[in-house]
Amino acid sequence: MSDITFHVKRFDPAVDKAPYYQDFVVPVEGSMTVLEALFDIQEKQDGSLAFRYCCRSSICGSCAMYINGRYRLACQTNVAHMGVPRVTVEPLPHVPLVRDLVWDMEDFFVKYEAIKPWLIRNSALPDTEITQSPAERLKLNMPIDCILCAACYSSCPSVWTEENYLGPAALLKAYRFEVDSRDEAGRERMPSWDNERGVYRCHTIANCSEACPKELNPTEGIQWLKGSAVRRRLLGRKK
């Protein structure tokens, strides 16, 4: 067991004029995660500390934070493994703050919804499952693991400079459905991403791929979408 200092960014717009940092010392033992340390602070030191969490097993995407200068899921970050006596916990950068580590995800989810994140089918539904070959399923392996934690969204300079840019997460989801062999959207989904607040605002900086705590590659998906727009328009292909 060792005492670790958590340097936490605090902000309550009802009281504070500007964000500030507060230090909490937490006795860390075993495989305690940053999220568990935050629970400890909330229970024993300061009940007003606000943060988002849900599944505690890195599949819900609620607890993405900026921990020691890196995009991480608090529930996935083992404090002892970081090997430092002091852990800085901040909300995701460049996003609108609600309170402490909680930020306003409304825009993020409006953009997610804009790309129609569901399978679009036009043909009659078969009586059995819609089958897919292993090769077709393989194409979904990367994008399907996205948990919408918004780390990529927060790391993208194009998001910082254009508030209506869809961002890497929504575009990766667009890719996930467009590349799906069961999807029959044709050009129905295209108007959402095939524009300058969509894929063409991506300058292949690849911060998103670096930030992703699930080690996904949104850039790859966005590049596929750009190519797909060219294939559809100029070569008459379906995808």
């Binding site: 902000f11 909300p91 460049h94 609108p96 306003d104």
Partner: peptide, 25 residues
């Protein structure tokens, strides 16, 4: 409250140490 009225978190943080970022700039 709309996002525009809110304080923006950690401006200047992000991935300024990312190679892609400097290459782009």
């Amino acid at each position: 409250m709309s996002a525009k009225d809110r304080e923006t978190a950690n401006v200047g943080s992000g991935l300024w140490k990312g190679l892609g970022m400097w290459a782009w700039l």
